[in-house]
Design a protein around this nucleic acid. Structure first.
Length: 677
DNA sequence: AAAAAAG
């Protein structure tokens, strides 16, 4: 049980200190001279249309949600969601509420600053624009009273400020949540990671968690998790999200979005969502009781990842009134429904189960103003597009611009509005803290080669073995088991219970060898994986990068060994690129193979997802065209720009994204996978 | 010739 003194002295001065107020042309500025990456150019915000998004409907807010749901077409009339209200800044508009205002020089002042003038004099804007920062010095009372006045006398509304107060500690829960600590993290490595943010009015990044006011609850939980300093993504993402901007980032640690979202929820309270949930509780509809209206939704591609995010959310919402929930397939839905019914403010979900829940009337997204798509590219690859559109666009979720959307991948800008693009160099993928080895191993030799590797590995270090098929995973696990190794496996044909059991046995070290399919490649954060073995190489380089990213986490050293043979021709070139980029040893045979392969294959098609209307192609085509400055391109080398998660070379800056030598030659990724998809 | 996710 630890007590954390949160030093509120940091408030405004600290924030001002980190703001680059003087530099209108700097990262915080909005000068027209600033480079606007092509993927942002068509954004309506830059077209100065001066039409205020929901302004038209602003006065028609009717202090309730029932009305809105009946006339779905007029969703703008439901009144601005929470995030719009405090949008403040000076000069009234607030960033999104006044699109033309993006070019107003006054907005060059960083919106992160909790300014309290502006919204007040404007009667019309009053309630929404008045900051309600309980932490911001002078914003306090005025902001709140304006808020209350505007809302009328709904009793529920008045309670929101309690959400910023810590609830009493619970020793047992605290131990459960925080005892598995992260140890041995080499944070120094982080400081080398380059980050580039593009977009209008990019808030200044923070250098420590104390640099931005996140409130007692969040700060206390940060301390309990022993996160000493923010990762590069967090340094940038936290202020961006706190200033209510949409965000697209190549990679993200869960905390990069959870911390600022929770912090905002604590500040702003449940708003309509609470009222709606309460009303729903009294309304025994067709499907029974209680529809929940989460304030924030996090979508993830795999069940295990959803679970992991949920676990993090539980930590960061400890001692608060926010109740996180998770829903995913393969588990008892009744149990999940009962959990939901106990209250759900932040929902983590896999798409399929969420749609199910929505259809059962258990979840309403009407007041979901924070949407996170984790591993969005992966979800689209996996064919979740219809379900995601169903969730995001074809139901009651506030439209973009009225909600805040954070996406960790570079696809699907359909869902974003006036966003900031964060390009973050990777830690622990192709960076130098992973030693990547590629060895030529014929199919028939793989097993014995694997045994050699396992024998050479220390008994207590974790080894993750990737195979390409579920069948292959079972077979290899059997084999290893018969050979006397403590191992387990995870793949999509195993029951959810077995999957979770396998993961926990692996994590705990009871089974230090895990044989896995792609299900375990992304996002899973298992500390202490010393060795990733690609028993079968994937056909997609992105998948490769994610797999090896399971080792060398958070600055630790890791080893990745890949078995290569003539079945892996399709990945040769990209693999070579990755090795070079990460300054790894390149076997000479791989180099010559890549050369041959390049001259063999002539026309390459595009994979499905490039034609999916998500703007992905636009981005990819253009992303390599310009170097926004500061991170010199590498010129000459033909880097693949494929895949948002292929950040930037370990120490090499931003070469492969903004190669500076034009689009054409950079587009080298094999667009057709092994199965011609 | 596959994996993932709803059941």
């Amino acid at each position: 049980m630890s007590h954390v003194a949160v030093d509120n002295v940091h408030g405004l001065e600290q924030q001002l200190a980190v703001l680059d107020l003087a530099a209108a042309d700097g990262p915080g500025g909005g000068s027209g001279r600033r480079y606007i990456p092509p993927h942002l150019r068509n954004n309506e915000v830059f077209q100065n249309d001066g039409v205020g998004g929901w302004d038209a409907g602003r006065n028609t807010f009717v202090n309730g949600y029932h009305d809105n749901r009946l006339n779905g077409a007029q969703s703008f009339n439901r009144g601005p969601p929470r995030m719009e209200r405090g949008r403040g800044g000076i000069g009234g508009g607030g960033y999104r509420g006044n699109r033309g205002g993006a070019f107003n020089p006054i907005n060059a002042i960083n919106p992160m600053q909790p300014m309290a003038f502006g919204g007040y004099e404007n009667k019309d804007a009053g309630g929404w624009n008045a900051p309600k920062e309980p932490y911001g010095s002078f914003a306090n009372n005025r902001g709140k009273s304006a808020f209350f006045n505007d809302r009328g006398g709904n009793a529920n509304r008045g309670r929101f400020d309690h959400w910023a107060k810590q609830t009493p500690p619970n020793e047992r829960l605290e131990h459960e949540l925080f005892s598995g600590s992260n140890t041995g993290i080499n944070f120094e490595k982080y400081d080398d990671i380059p980050v580039e943010a593009t977009g209008q009015n990019v808030p200044h990044h923070i250098d420590s968690f104390q640099d931005i006011e996140m409130g007692d609850i969040v700060m206390s939980n940060i301390n309990l998790t022993r996160y000493t300093r923010p990762t590069p993504v967090q340094k940038y993402a936290i202020p961006i999200i706190k200033t209510k901007r949409d965000l697209m980032a190549c990679s993200g640690k869960t905390a990069a979005f959870l911390l600022p979202i929770l912090s905002q929820i604590f500040v702003e309270g449940p708003g309509e969502a609470l009222a709606a949930a309460k009303a729903s509780g009294q309304d025994n509809g067709k499907y029974g009781r209680r529809k929940q209206f989460p304030i924030s939704l996090v979508l993830a591609p795999t069940r295990e990842l959803a679970l992991q995010i949920y676990d993090e959310a539980r930590k960061f919402s400890y001692r608060s009134r926010v109740r996180p929930c998770v829903v995913y397939g393969g588990a008892d839905i009744g149990q999940q429904i009962r959990e939901l019914e106990r209250g759900c403010h932040l929902l983590v979900a896999t798409p399929g189960r969420l749609v199910d829940m929505m259809e059962r009337g258990k979840i309403g997204l009407d007041f979901c103003t924070y949407l996170v798509l984790d591993e969005a590219d992966r979800m689209l690859d996996m064919g979740f597009e219809p379900q995601i559109r169903r969730i995001v666009e074809q139901d009651s979720m506030p439209p973009k611009g009225l909600r805040q959307t954070m996406m960790f991948s570079i696809l699907a800008r359909d869902f974003l509005e006036d966003y900031i693009f964060l390009a973050v160099g990777r830690v622990g993928s192709t960076s130098e803290n992973i030693t990547q080895k590629v060895v030529w191993v014929e199919e028939s030799d793989k097993r014995s080669f694997l045994l050699d590797l396992l024998n050479a590995t220390g008994k207590d270090s974790l080894t993750l073995v990737f195979v390409e098929t579920k069948k292959g995973a079972d077979a290899l696990e059997d084999f290893l088991y018969r050979e006397g190794y403590a191992c387990t496996s995870i793949h999509g044909d195993r029951s959810q219970r077995d999957r979770e059991e396998a993961l926990s046995q692996f994590r705990s070290g009871r089974c230090p060898i895990l044989v896995a399919t792609a299900v375990a490649a992304r996002g899973l954060d298992i500390s202490n994986v010393k060795h990733v073995i690609n028993f079968d190489l994937p056909s997609d380089i992105e998948e490769y990068v994610h797999r090896i990213g399971r080792t060398g986490r958070v600055g630790n050293l890791g080893l990745a060994t890949s078995f290569f043979n003539d079945k892996n021709g399709n990945i040769t070139k990209d693999l070579l690129d990755i090795l070079v980029e990460a300054k790894q040893e390149v076997p000479s045979w791989l180099e010559s193979l890549a050369y041959e392969h390049q001259h063999k294959s002539t026309t390459r098609g595009r994979s499905k997802r490039f034609s999916g209307g998500f703007g992905a192609r636009d981005y990819r085509q253009t992303s390599a065209t310009n170097n926004p400055g500061g991170f010199g391109g590498r010129g000459g080398r033909n880097q693949s720009v494929h895949g948002g998660n292929r950040g930037f070379g370990g120490g090499g800056g931003f070469g492969n994204f903004y190669s500076g030598d034009g689009y054409g030659g950079n587009y080298s990724h094999s667009q057709v996978d092994w199965w011609g998809n």
